[in-house]
Simulated assay, not measured.
Amino acid sequence: MLFIVPIAVIAMIVKKISPLIALLAGTLLAAVFALIFQPDLVLAVSGMKEWSFEAGYKGIMNAITVKTTVNPISDNPKIVEELAGLFEGKGMESMLGTIWLIICAMVFGGVMDAIGALSRISKSLLNLFSSVFGLFFSTVASCIAINFTASDQYLALVVPGKMYEKAYREKGLAPENLSRTLEDSGTVTSVLIPWNTCGAYHSGTLGVSVLDYAIYAMFSWLSPIMTLIFAAFSIKIKQLVTKTPTLDTIGEE
């Protein structure tokens, strides 16, 4: 019966239901099933001696929010030690450090954008090069630089996107080139920076330091390199298509 909870959550994911609704429904469903099928564990987590409404409520809230531990019962001390980690949960409290870091990064990035510092960085890089390859290189460098300085993936996409849109058009390059370059350098590299919102989230969720998993995230650090290689050899570089004037369009003008 307990497998109904994860199956229900997976079904909501498949149905593409909003993540907040799916997670909330999964949490509430798990709480109900715990009260029905595992009341002894709920009582143990609550820290109270007798079952009551207060004990049930406290047990569920403790399991969701704070660190909880249930001591496994066994005559073998080795088994107890090995199972102790499986019966330990940290709740939402364990994510607070990551949440504070993400909030600080977003505020810092917003301030950097508001004072024009991010635009200044992009403009400086844009003025360094005049060739098509230089334009791609400037875009990649801007995205990575803003990921480092603003600590937010969203700003690393929006700011260079606005700054380089005209430059790509003047070079006769289709907007798809800019979009792809932003994705290859702004989106995927954010997880490689420990103080970036994405890096902090991944590290907190996986329980692995960014520096430890970065070397294995080959897609993240290979994407900007491949983008520059493609730009250097003009591979898959889409040109801007201009409509040829016709008698109908001339007449309309």
Score class of each variant (00 low, 15 high):
L118S: 04
A231H: 09
R180Y: 01
S131F: 04
I4L: 08
E252Q: 10
F136M: 13
L178W: 03
I225P: 10
K49S: 15
F53H: 10
K236F: 13
Y164A: 13
F230L: 11
A232W: 10
E54Q: 15
A22H: 06
L24T: 15
S234I: 01
E93P: 08
F108Y: 13
P77V: 08
P6N: 00
V70E: 05
Y168T: 02
G47C: 08
V66N: 08
I102T: 00
I121K: 04
I60C: 07
K78F: 07
G59A: 06
I215P: 00
S185N: 07
A84M: 15
F133Q: 07
G59F: 05
P72H: 02
I146G: 03
I115G: 02
A55F: 05
P39E: 01
T244G: 02
I17H: 07
L126C: 10
A200F: 03
G97Y: 00
F3H: 14
G85D: 10
P224C: 07
L157I: 15
M48Q: 14
S220Y: 02
T242P: 09
A11P: 06
E170T: 06
S46D: 04
G56N: 11
L2A: 11
L23S: 14
C198E: 00
A31Y: 13
I235W: 13
A25R: 09
I103G: 04
P77D: 07
Q239R: 15
T242V: 11
V210D: 02
I17M: 10
L20P: 05
L125V: 13
Q38T: 12
T205K: 06
K236R: 12
D113R: 05
S18F: 05
G91I: 10
K78P: 06
I229G: 02
I102S: 00
K78Q: 11
L28D: 01
V208T: 12
V140Q: 03
S119V: 08
T249S: 15
W51N: 08
A63H: 07
M92D: 03
E50G: 04
P77W: 01
N177D: 03
